[in-house]
Design a binder for these strands. Structure first.
Lengths: 186, 186
DNA sequence: ACATTTGTAGAGTGACTAGTCAATTTATAC
DNA sequence: GTATAAATTGACTAGTCACTCTACAAATGT
């Protein structure tokens, strides 16, 4: 449905600008070009809308992460591709990426079931386990590795967003930061 | 003042549990054991209270970071001491550390003046510049280094908070993660 | 054509909240 | 001991917000 999407899009931008509670549902509806009641037709509560927005956004990020990955490549190249994809997506969807962080450090995050969190992280953890088995990645706890990589990406994204970099300069930062990360974990 | 502190303490715990806007000032006052009006006697608005809580908390963290640092030590040892201090403080003040992250990824963060942010980061940036000059730390942009180190610490803290580690095991994780970080930037 | 479901609208409601205010208590100064 | 200032109280208000409800429109199926 078009309006359902419009509502999510409007909510995303308003949440990022004003925060969850400082954004009334009435404003979201207005921004989305629908009536107040329509919003509650698609989402029973404001909380449900917020959760749906998170799941939806996170899903799109994950899908993009694994796009263009060539299975034929070495583990390092595959990893680099996923790394680059992630940062590219974050740079091209700044509001979405910021929203994910905002959500993750909010009490709403507790409403995401442990299953969903595990399921979401599983492919990444499996990939890291594979790397360890192949003796390409240091034999550290995968949870630790995962968290470190995640944080690293958040950091690079913050850095890239702090200034206006030209496209080649940005590519250079991504390349070099990947080398730093790879040196650290391999 | 005792009550001023009590209000901040109550606000911290409630904000971390319920979020900024889902925490009414009336609840903060109640939790702090003061009347509604008293809260507004010390803080003109709720926003002012939130900002004050952030500045106060961040200040205490920064102070702790540089405690026990022996100027006689090598740059690496000094850096390790600051690193360890930070993670220790974060582990001993989980609510406070979580609050800082929560605040930093919220629209409230925009209310902190660039000056205050710069002033807060300056000693750390100077320290990194020193390390680069001494050819101990890789000659990367200091902003990039700073963000990467910050993110790394946030990540390790997340990992340590995700499970219950025994004290020696925790120390081991901190030691090893420091080596990872140090390898990356030196 | 008709019936039934689904989508859309927007005024209305009850609950809640940030901040005020006038009154009272406590501390401070001389 | 009195006067002045500062701290504290809690009832009150004006406004806001999540969500409901009824009415109507559009689609869908038969």
């Amino acid at each position: 449905m078009d309006k359902k999407e419009e509502i999510l899009k409007a909510a995303l931008n308003l949440f990022v600008e004003f925060g969850f509670h400082a954004t009334p549902t009435s404003k979201i509806a207005k921004e989305a070009g629908v009536a107040n009641g329509t919003l509650f037709h698609y989402y029973k509560t404001k909380d449900e809308l917020i959760i749906a927005l998170y799941s939806n956004t996170k899903k799109r990020l994950t899908e993009y992460m694994y796009s263009n990955v060539s299975a034929a490549d070495s583990l390092e190249l595959v990893f680099k591709c996923i790394y680059t994809n992630t940062i590219e997506w974050a740079q091209e969807h700044k509001a979405e990426f910021y929203f994910i962080q905002q959500f993750s450090t909010s009490p709403y995050y507790l409403q995401i079931s442990p299953e969903e969190i595990r399921k979401q992280a599983e492919p990444h953890l499996d990939f890291l386990k594979e790397g360890i088995k192949a003796a390409v990645i240091k034999p550290l706890p995968v949870d630790l590795l995962y968290t470190l990589i995640n944080s690293h990406i958040v950091g690079i994204n913050q850095y890239l967003s702090s200034e206006e970099f030209s496209s080649p300069k940005q590519k250079k930062v991504i390349d070099e930061s990947f080398d730093l990360l790879w040196d650290m974990i391999s």
